[in-house]
Structure formats: structure tokens, C-alpha cells
Design a protein around this nucleic acid. Structure first.
Length: 308
RNA sequence: GGCGCGGUAGCCAAGUGGCAAGGCAGCGGUCUGCAAAACCGCUAUUCAGCGGUUCGAAUCCGCUCCGCGCCU
């Protein structure tokens, strides 16, 4: 096929359980592409079931990157993801192939396409100190402080949003510059390449049905053991928040039975899917692809090709 | 059949005479180095139904319907 256009980057995004992996693979086969995961959990090793790695056949048929790549104990983040993904993108393009970014992590997508402001790596000392202050005096107290040094950021961040208030203060203390100023300086893929973003979606009740059935399958294929194994190891701040970990932990701690854990995971996954959609909805560059239960990945890929 | 208790949003529920707490679910949103995270907003002109008492009723009274329990 001659759909290959150098300097072109394709994103296949969408809510969890919509079928991104299969569509991305089907598409990759048709246009000689390689797939880079755009998922904050699939990067971790040992999360095959919990983060739903693409099936073995999919992984075999097309080259995949950034899946099961790093240890769950590693403090990975959006910035690290960005630099690794960027390198892969450049390599793939240099190879004359198309990089397809597939995944559901809105922040990782945005950090690639729109960039991220440059700063030193996270200063954990300052951050921890601020967290202690937040616990003692409340986040509103820190918010008042932020208002003095960076009124712009204070307007954008809710007084209860301790995490962002602390990040803003941390940036100011370590660089001497207000975060709202730094945030204006960002350069991403869209400055150098043609970006195409396709978001797979379906009706809400159908999406929720897919999520429920995926969770049932996950338990059948050994989610419990995988989660147990992960819980025994040291997990990073990010990896420990993977859906499934907390739910299984509650069960193991005796807070509820296995059925309850399963229902909880379904519920939390639905909430997650909803937040993903909120993220994608506001990005007006996205082209929406409505899928239904009877659509095959190849058929969906065929619909995408002419629009690349 | 008799007696008792109860019926408040999709669910759980507070309120027992002065304009219907809260939680869950649902929906919408924020998001630039923890993002499958964290945070925010919205959601009952109406309290099973009908009548009555009262300036005023989800709250008091009567009847009807429904549920639960006990008795015969």
C-alpha cells in the first residue's frame, strides 16, 4: 500500500476496552507501520493481564514498542515517557515507516503532540516537604501562598487540588520561575510532523458492557495471581495505581469478597473510561471513529486509511 | 381476618409541623514530570395515593394501595 507518508504520525486513542490494540495492529499491517504504546500502565513489566497488553498474536505480527519495558518499581512519568517515545518515533520515521501511537493515556498523548515545559527533574525533597505542610495546614493554605507568587496558576488550580498546587510551588522553589510562565513554552510533535489522531468510541452502554466482560475475562485468566505478585514487589507511585491492584488488595486484606472486588474493578474502570473520554472530547484535532460490536479491526482500519 | 412496623431520587438514607441533609450510582468538567492518578461541578417544585386538620404537612388525622413481621 502506498499510504506511507514520511513525517506522518498516527494516533489511535480511545477509552479502555474499545479495541485500540487490534485496530492499531490491523492498520499497521496495511501501511507498514510500527506501534508505540501510549499507555501509562502497559509500559510496566509484569502487568500483562492487569493492563491488557495486546495479545501475543498482535505482538508477533507487528513490531511494538514501550510495552512491558520497564520495572514496576521504576518511577516512570510523562516526561520519561515523552523522551523514550520521541526517540522511537524518530527511529521509525528514519526507517521509512509510520509510527502509530496507540493507547488511552491522554496526558502522554498531549505531552508528545504539544510538548512539555522544560525544567529540572522533579525535586522530591521540596515536594515531600510541601506535602507535609499540606497535611498539616490544608491545601487551601498552600493555595494562598501560590496566589502570591503565581496568581495566574492559582486561578487555574482549585484550592483542593493539592497535587497541582504542590507541583506549582515546587517548580517555583526549584527554578525561581512561576509555573504558569514556563507552561507557555512547549513544543511538540505537531511542530515537525503531520499528526493524525483517531479516537475510537461507541455508545456508552455498549462501552460499559465491553468493560464488564473484559474484567470477567481478566479474572478468568489469572488477574488475581498477577496482582498478588505485583503487590509483593515494590511498586512505584504510578504503577501501584493501576486499576486492579487496589481492588485485589482490598480483597486480600479481607475488606470484601472476590465478587465484590470484581464489581469494584468494573465500576472503577467505567469511571476511568469516562475520564478518558472527557480528555479526548476537548481535543478538537481528534477525528472520531464510531465502532460497534460487529465491526472487525480490519474493517475499522480500512476506514482510517483514506483519512491518514 | 386481626395487630404492629414501614413506604423520601436508580439505590442506601437523614429529616417527625416552618421553604427536602448526606452517601452511592449517573452525567458534565479540569488536566504540561504520580495521570488507570488527583481534583471540581450538576442531579427530588417534591416525600406511595387520595382526602382532611393547619397561616403552613414528608412530618398530625382518616381511608386506600404496597412491603415486612407477628398473631389466629
Amino acid at each position: 500500500m502506498k499510504c506511507r507518508k514520511p513525517g506522518r504520525v498516527v494516533f489511535i486513542v480511545g477509552p479502555t476496552a474499545i479495541g485500540k490494540s487490534a485496530v492499531a495492529t490491523a492498520l499497521a499491517k496495511k501501511i507498514d507501520a510500527e506501534i508505540i504504546s501510549c499507555d501509562s500502565m502497559q509500559v510496566y513489566k509484569g502487568m500483562r493481564i492487569i493492563s491488557s497488553y495486546p495479545d501475543k498474536e498482535l505482538l508477533k505480527s507487528v513490531r511494538h514498542h514501550l510495552i512491558a519495558d520497564i520495572s514496576p518499581s521504576c518511577e516512570f512519568n510523562a516526561s520519561k515517557y515523552r523522551s523514550q517515545a520521541l526517540r522511537k518515533i524518530k527511529e521509525i520515521i528514519a526507517d521509512g515507516k509510520v509510527p502509530i501511537l496507540a493507547g488511552g493515556t491522554g496526558l502522554y498523548m498531549s505531552v508528545l503532540i504539544d510538548g512539555i515545559f522544560k525544567t529540572k527533574s522533579a525535586d522530591t525533597k521540596i515536594r515531600e516537604c510541601l506535602y507535609r505542610q499540606a497535611e498539616k495546614n490544608g491545601s487551601a493554605f498552600l493555595h494562598k501562598r501560590l496566589k502570591k507568587i503565581d496568581p495566574q496558576a492559582a486561578v487555574n488550580i482549585h484550592p483542593n487540588d493539592a497535587r497541582r498546587i504542590i507541583r506549582a510551588l515546587e517548580i517555583f522553589e526549584s527554578t525561581g520561575k512561576p509555573i504558569s510562565l514556563l507552561q507557555k513554552e512547549r513544543k511538540g510533535l505537531n511542530a515537525e510532523y503531520d499528526i493524525k489522531i483517531f479516537c475510537l468510541n461507541t455508545k456508552r452502554d455498549e462501552l460499559y458492557r465491553r468493560i464488564d466482560s473484559r474484567v470477567d475475562k481478566m479474572f478468568k485468566s489469572g488477574l488475581l495471581n498477577e496482582a498478588k505478585k505485583l503487590l509483593k514487589s515494590r511498586l512505584s507511585k504510578t504503577s501501584r495505581t493501576a486499576l486492579g491492584i487496589r481492588e485485589v488488595k482490598g480483597y486480600l486484606d479481607g475488606a470484601y469478597d472476590l465478587e465484590e472486588a470484581k464489581q469494584l474493578l468494573k465500576l472503577n474502570t467505567r469511571h476511568y473510561a469516562k475520564r478518558q473520554l472527557t480528555w479526548f472530547r476537548k481535543d478538537k484535532r481528534i477525528e472520531w471513529i464510531e465502532v460497534s460490536a460487529k465491526d472487525k479491526p480490519e474493517g475499522i482500519a480500512r476506514k482510517i486509511i483514506p483519512r491518514i
